[in-house]
Design a protein around this nucleic acid. Structure first.
Lengths: 352, 352
DNA sequence: TTGAAAGCGCTACCAC
DNA sequence: GTGGTAGCGCTTTCAA
């Protein structure tokens, strides 16, 4: 049987109240008694039950983290950072992969409540905002990470997605691209929307038009879907010279599409990813991508959340971190005429 | 305030015992009363507290998963599979990244106990086996995944690492390699040891010697360390023509090392990875690697664990799954003379 | 069928 | 300083 506070108390010849006090380091006890009790706890290998103490109004020291998919390297990195910081502060982490599906969000949120987690970090898209109402009603400390839901005025930690898209656009514009396409994520995903907004508005400012049919949306299996949609875009006779992908997984799909179609990257097609996951550094060619400070984001989210559940107030509603462009080898100047397909004769092509 | 079983009981004009019975679907209640209560629970948006019910001897419906690092794509995939299967069976998952450090293992194990998880899945190396004793003493259902500890007779789900190493060796031998080196993980990691054993014994059977100095061990940051160690091995004038890496991360380090040293993969150097993570399919060149059935492993681990905590008995102690070789583009025949460096004059080199 | 009541292990308040 | 005790929300006998 598990040893309880009673066992310790009996063994020490004191009341459970005394034991409780030394566990929690409060109240008044003589040093000797205290040491006595500590020794006995060790000898009995006593571990206080978080369950029981949680029931008496204390915390569970458990946090929930909702992400679309823990096997997506970006979220795995976020999770690792959240886990580390949480662990350091004494909290465990329950992970919940939602696949961006509202049903799963709802299910997980309900589970986390039933388990009385102390706080929830949401890094997944939520289409139907009402799903979050229970959190507010029961005032469960909540924080958004890498996702924005401006209408909700929840504390939020995220990268400036708009300017991330803008950076990508500027990079491509500077290289001379004029025919650009986009691989988007599920429109539920606010960060994806913002990235595209930043991207397209920057193009417009440069007098470049982003045609609607060249914005393709991918759901579910990002790599696979990214590949399909990229092929769709690329196999037209008139095709873009650059592709902006809303995350690295999509960019990998695009890379595969280019390979399948025999298009050289970056010579015939430039590709920009987003997230700067480990994937971006190992692809062929290595991906130019917009980086997010995942580690910092995870830490901040945890710190902010813990502050929230201690003070019961929200200090700083939004932390917006700057993205950063990592230029690797998947981007270059476009082929001389913007639509290379019509330019077989143009030998200058190979000069790039 | 959170609505409790009392609120529901009062509202329904019944005792809490009645409510408890409908929650748990047992005991005898008239259909009408039952429906009444269900309605009221819904209206009040009542969610039973797992904490409280756990305190009364029931389960917490929470599982713990120990892995070296959740941001390592292999373990992220395992985690995802475990999470999915667990979720389906009604369990949540607490993840614990140990970095293969015993202190962290101990800390996490203790935390998981205090939180009364129903079972623990261990996918991380544990050097000091005594750390696991508390699990046995308190008979907490435990299962090993992707790690072996034969001395412990715990239920285990893993790939046949030995034969995985052997497959890699055979592949390389068939290609004609005779000078082979190995990038190993921390020797704490049993799977890594087994892979190397399978690899080297297969070489020996083929009359090839694996020299000690060509087995390099990497710890901590696998990619970075793999790169360093690979450079060490490769920059000697006499260098191997093939490198077997105990996981994909190390293989990526090796790939980077080759690039830095100007060695063409696979022409001048063949590299074999292990795990077949998403990384292997996107590297330059794509990695030949030994695959583990992560999804199946995760599912089996959860099913076995749940069976264990239901029946309190261990049916099948070990599930050993077969690995599979995925041949991609990082392996090829060796340069004509096995030690290319001494063969500058040999123009045949470039024929490969 | 139904409900009263005894815990589960722990915290916190209060009296000594 | 110290210990008795009333809960926390729920499950589970056991009578009625």
């Amino acid at each position: 049987m598990k040893t309880t506070i009673y066992d310790v108390a009996r063994e020490a010849g004191v009341s459970i109240a005394a034991v409780s006090q030394v566990i929690n380091g409060k109240g008044k006890i003589s040093k000797e008694r205290r040491n006595d009790i500590i020794q006995i706890m060790e000898r009995l290998n006593y571990q206080p039950s978080v369950i029981a103490s949680a029931l008496t109004g204390k915390k569970t020291y458990t946090l929930g983290l909702l992400v679309p998919d823990i096997s997506n390297p970006f979220f795995a990195e976020i999770a690792r950072s959240v886990e580390d910081q949480g662990h350091q502060r004494g909290y465990s982490l329950v992970i919940c992969s939602t696949d961006n599906k509202d049903e799963k969000v709802e299910r997980y949120l309900s589970l986390l409540q039933q388990k009385s987690v102390d706080g929830i970090i949401i890094g997944t898209g939520v289409k139907n905002r009402e799903l979050l109402n229970p959190l507010f009603e029961k005032s469960i400390p909540t924080i958004l990470i890498a996702r924005d839901m401006p209408s909700l005025d929840l504390q939020t930690v995220l990268v400036d997605d708009y300017s991330g898209g803008a950076i990508a656009a500027r990079h491509l514009i500077e290289l001379g691209h004029k025919a650009l396409a986009v691989l988007a994520e599920n429109p539920k995903v606010s960060s994806s929307r913002e990235r595209i907004r930043g991207f397209s508005e920057t193009l417009v400012q440069a007098g470049i038009e982003l045609q609607e049919s060249w914005i393709q949306t991918c759901r579910e299996d990002l790599v696979k879907d990214g590949k399909c949609k990229a092929i769709e875009i690329l196999q037209n006779t008139k095709r873009p010279t650059a592709l902006f992908c809303c995350n690295d997984l999509l960019a990998i799909g695009a890379l595969q599409a280019a390979k399948e179609l025999g298009l050289k990257v970056p010579k015939q097609l430039s590709i920009v990813g987003f997230d700067n996951t480990i994937l971006a550094s190992v692809t062929d060619p290595p991906l130019t991508t917009v980086s997010q400070p995942t580690e910092l984001m995870g830490k901040m989210a945890v710190d902010l959340l813990i502050e929230q559940l201690k003070t019961k107030t929200i200090s700083n509603p939004r932390k917006i971190l700057p993205p950063e462009l990592y230029v690797r080898d998947s981007t270059a100047k476009p082929p001389n005429k913007s639509h290379a397909t019509n330019d077989k004769k143009n030998k200058l092509d190979s000069i790039n």
